[in-house]
Design a protein around this nucleic acid. Structure first.
Lengths: 206, 206
DNA sequence: CTATAAAGTGATGACTAATTCACATTTGGA
DNA sequence: TCCAAATGTGAATTAGTCATCACTTTATAG
């Protein structure tokens, strides 16, 4: 099925994308609440009223933006895991693809975390810096534990202590967030070993 | 060193906490931008002007709120990893403590993700629901890979396929976010195997 | 009991931003 | 060439917020 769109309709779609692209730039830089329709209109070189011809309101514009980008992202991920026959290669491919997409869509990633972490807002407030420092300092403390474990040969040196610390924290956060999202579907990791087993035992015989 | 504060000063501190607690409730529910000073004042049963006796402005209030909670959180974490002598027990203790704090501070956690994930905002917009669906659907696809790997005995059954999927995603996100935050300090996981090694090889000989 | 300081109040000013709509411009077919 | 319909415009409307400050109330000390 090729384009059944008239020139007119194609033009409209192009303009829509134009608006969304400009909005993405602004949102990712300053955060949803700190970008006005005025500003988007200006950057996209349309009048305000025109934006409202394309989107019911600001929220609608934002929704469209996020949803379309996410669909694109998801599609790429699904494709990535269907690419190979070997399960390990599927995983490798997924990791690589996700990283690639991440890197090539930084503005969107930032929008997501930042209309989030309130980046625009926190950064200005100097809060972000303060918190970042704490997080890193703690990660190093965690890493020290892994380091000691490796030195005393309790642990095998499968990765750098710092990587292990990051990984552990990432896994734990992931479990906790899922539980928060849907406690009925995702059991709370009551027993620390349900998390640690992933680190202690390897998937593949060594 | 006990309280060297006068009754007056203690009273003031109590009120300050009162304000912060009420603000936390509101922020975590509706997000920073959707809560007015008016509203905070109302809920805390003070006049607006009084809030400004305690905090220079809205941002200052928010900053104080987040920073104090984070300090509390961090302290608990540091204590947790200093608790035992055995490295594995340190990790267990950390995981348990973080989970406990997470559970007992849900409003704050929500504030953080949500004045973040724009939860307040996205939820209202119905965006969140939409995205959640996509994430879960994809996690199941990932889980299917682990399941097949286990069935075909490529992988050892160290955890449920779904847990493994969650964990892998968590680790990958953690690495990518760190890289985003400070590319100079955190090498981008160019090679998928730097991530996978953590899953494939166990820390402890089996 | 009175005077003085501290704490608390909330109407109000100054401002910002979303959305509307009456009007101008462009388009494309007759 | 002309004109109706579609498209584009941006000043004006509307709604809401932060922050101030002149004032009231409460607490304390003499």
């Amino acid at each position: 099925m090729t384009n059944k769109l008239s020139r007119r309709e194609r033009e409209k779609l192009r303009q829509r994308q134009e608006i969304l692209a400009n909005a993405l730039d602004l949102f990712s830089e300053k955060g949803y609440h700190n970008v006005s329709m005025q500003e988007i209109a200006g950057k996209a070189e349309f009048a305000i009223g025109t934006l409202y011809k394309f989107f019911q309101n600001k929220e609608d514009l934002y929704k469209a933006l996020v949803l379309e980008k996410c669909d694109e992202f998801e599609e790429a991920m699904v494709e990535a895991i269907e690419d190979s026959d070997d399960v390990a290669d599927k995983l490798r491919n997924y990791i690589r693809t996700k990283g690639d997409r991440f890197r090539s869509n930084l503005p969107f990633v930032r929008l997501f975390l930042a209309e989030s972490k309130g980046a625009s807002f926190n950064i200005k407030a100097g809060l972000d810096e303060e918190l970042r420092k704490r997080v890193y300092s703690f990660l190093h403390k965690l890493a020290a534990i892994f380091e000691r474990g490796i030195q005393t040969q309790r642990f095998k040196p499968i990765a750098s202590p710092y990587s292990l610390a990051v990984a552990l924290d990432g896994v734990l956060d992931a479990f906790l967030l899922l539980w928060l999202d849907a406690p009925e579907h995702h059991p709370y990791p009551e027993d620390p070993d349900t998390v640690l087993v992933i680190f202690f035992k390897g998937l593949i015989d060594s």
